[in-house]
Design a protein around this nucleic acid. Structure first.
Lengths: 207, 207
DNA sequence: ACCCCAATCTAAGCGCCGTTTAGAATCTAA
DNA sequence: TTAGATTCTAAACGGCGCTTAGATTGGGGT
């Protein structure tokens, strides 16, 4: 993992630190992450990161913001590819879990605000709002097509939001993986069945 | 916060450390927690905790186990007080969120496995299984009374489990509180509406 | 071509952290 | 009373986040 470089100046240290940090989380878990270790993996001295980030939480926040951008792209694509609004809602949920599989390092920091909440990175505070906006619009589309209860969309928005975060939290923290093995299934398959359950409950509900 | 004591021996240091740690998390957040700080708050030297816990994660694990016991009591009481199975399912969800409000310090450690997963405390690995068991039985009761789809209960079990964890994660991490303020509601009220939505979707679904 | 300056990195050091070790103080039981 | 186990303190180790001072480099103006 430790990188070497030809010249005294690194060249692209900022991006290299972001990448090294994500790789470290994915390889050894978020408990193994320290700024000194990330710098070591990137092949620079412990003080070098401070020329690119004001402090440790700013680096984590930058990764979290990057993750929210990647997540939003995935959610939008999933929503747009769905033929109906209620399928779009399920597709958003599945895309969230798929994102967790593809970018677990990013997601770990997104889920741990005590690490990635940095006053130095103001956009981190609003990084997730666009996804909530997309979710809200999709729920409203469901209401228009009759596949969600009329009225305030907020309870369903919050429920799907919490459901997505809950599934990926259980997955990344371990218990879901263990339970799936025990039950002879996989987190992806279980997510698909949860999605199907959600869609059937919405589509098949009484007036 | 720093305790003083009359004698050289503390007397009940183990419990005092657990309490000081929980109080510290609730007062200054989990980012402010260190074993030295907990020992300082309890009025002992930095090495004293090592006579009661093999390492830092064992202390955190003990708190997590304690929390799971408190949580299980609350969930059981909520389930038993409910008149029907589907109401019991909703009551479990609301009780989970109520627990988060009453014991946020415990819950923070329960949700962060990288801190509280200790091989020294083997019961920590199975601390949450009784709650899942209760949830599974309740879903099966719902199936018997016709308020849940027949077949494998697992998707609904996992969905309610994830929903609970998602809501409390969003709450403790901040975004839910902010969004509720913005929408003119409270996390408890929103949880009640999510619960009502869940129950109505289950009870009002088509065959 | 030169030089100067800003940007980038290293080296060294601060206090705090988790943890270990040696030893002092205290409780318990014979 | 006293021997031994228990519980605490004191001191030390390396690693951490972060700061400061100084070395190295690349680019822009003359």
């Amino acid at each position: 993992m430790p990188q070497t470089r030809a010249s005294y100046h690194h060249g692209g240290l900022r991006d290299a630190l972001l990448a090294a940090c994500v790789a470290l989380i994915e390889a050894e878990g978020i408990g193994a992450v320290s700024l000194r270790r990330v710098a070591r993996d990137a092949g620079v001295s412990p003080g070098a990161p401070y020329h690119h980030f004001p402090d440790r939480s700013a680096l984590f926040a930058a990764i979290a913001v990057q993750g929210h951008q990647l997540l939003l792209e995935r959610l939008r694509a999933a929503r747009e590819a769905a033929p109906t609004a209620v399928r779009g809602l399920g597709a958003i949920l599945e895309a969230y879990v798929a994102f967790a599989r593809e970018h677990p390092g990013h997601l770990h920091l997104m889920l741990r605000s005590e690490l990635s909440a940095s006053p130095q990175v103001p956009e981190a505070a609003h990084a997730g709002e666009a996804a909530i906006q997309l979710l809200t619009e999709t729920v409203q589309d469901c209401q228009r097509e009759g596949s969600a209860p009329a009225g305030d969309p907020e309870p369903l928005v919050a429920a799907v939001w919490a459901l997505a975060i809950g599934i990926v939290t259980l997955w990344l923290d371990g218990p879901l993986e263990g339970r799936c093995v025990q039950l002879g299934t996989t987190p992806e398959a279980l997510t698909a069945r949860i999605t199907a359950l959600l869609e059937s409950l919405l589509a098949g509900r009484a007036a």
